[in-house]
């Protein structure tokens, strides 16, 4: 887990500082120097338009990671809000939200993500909307179940008997106790969303060329990868590394935050 955190932090730092660290601009075309192999000027070589692969990887990581982070955070916020409301107040609020959650969980997420992103047209915004719509229900379900469990925990009832108000119970006790499971869920989901964004971009539904994005780069490389396999290998390994690190961290967090009675925070 320590390794995963270090690697991920390094990649993220590198990508977020893209304007400072990338040796070339991601869209600097040089038709005189196409598909060249690794050299001193271009550490990983250049692509079919003579653009520096390393720079494009760094800029591409920036797009992928930022979009994945923002999308997952928005999903989380929506799920947290609906789930906590449903779980803590119950009644009609709960019935309504529970119905929506059941509806969205009863539908095939990937197909819907594709259809929604496809209908809205290519671009980061449609990916964002498609992912949020098809992913929030999982968050809401887990948060609701956890809130319900906490609300009915004997110590919460004890606090009510001591005279603690709803605000105090929610803010000081329930929300801090929710953070653990939510963090685990966030991390595990982030891994899946990184993959989904890359896949949608690969299909041509996400960021458009000449933007650098790992999925887009793999698609660009399809025509040339027999001669220059590194064009496909490098962005693929980047996605794999980021997703693996995120998943490793999620697993590690889950083990670490498991309740003392061995009950795992999430299935």
């Amino acid at each position: 887990m320590k390794v995963a955190v270090t690697v991920l932090a390094a990649i993220a730092a590198l990508c977020l500082a893209a304007p400072l660290v990338a040796p070339y601009a991601p869209d600097a075309i040089d038709m005189t120097d196409r598909l060249s192999g690794p050299s001193f000027e271009h550490w990983l070589g250049t692509d079919h338009l003579g653009r520096d692969l390393l720079s494009r990887l760094i800029w591409g990581g920036r797009s992928t990671i930022l979009l994945a982070l923002i999308t997952t955070l928005a999903t989380l916020a929506l799920g947290l809000l609906t789930g906590a409301l449903a779980g803590y107040f119950g009644g009609l609020v709960d019935d309504g939200i529970e119905g929506l959650v059941l509806l969205f969980q009863g539908l095939p997420g990937l197909s819907f993500m594709l259809a929604i992103a496809g209908t809205l047209g290519p671009g980061a915004l449609s990916i964002f909307i498609a992912v949020v719509i098809t992913s929030w229900a999982d968050f809401a379900r887990v948060v609701r179940a956890e809130t319900l469990r906490l609300r009915e925990a004997p110590w919460v009832e004890g606090l009510r008997a001591l005279g603690a108000g709803h605000g105090r119970v929610l803010a000081l006790h329930i929300v801090p106790n929710l953070l653990g499971p939510v963090l685990v869920l966030f991390t595990l989901r982030l891994g899946r969303i990184v993959l989904a964004i890359a896949a949608l971009s690969f299909l041509g539904l996400g960021l458009q060329p000449p933007n650098a994005e790992w999925g887009v780069m793999i698609n660009d490389a399809r025509a040339y990868y027999r001669g220059a396999p590194i064009l496909m290998l490098a962005p693929g390994l980047c996605i794999l590394t980021v997703a693996l690190c995120v998943n490793l961290i999620g697993d590690g967090l889950r083990d670490r935050l498991a309740e003392p009675d061995g009950r795992e925070v999430l299935p």
Partner: peptide, 26 residues
């Protein structure tokens, strides 16, 4: 096995497909 499972879970499917084609088909 746990590491393998996590790695399989983290592989982008479209990339894996292209790499498999490169190795086994081409």
């Amino acid at each position: 096995g746990r590491v393998v499972a996590l790695a399989l879970l983290s592989v982008p499917g479209f990339w894996l497909a292209l790499m498999l084609i490169l190795v086994f088909a081409e």
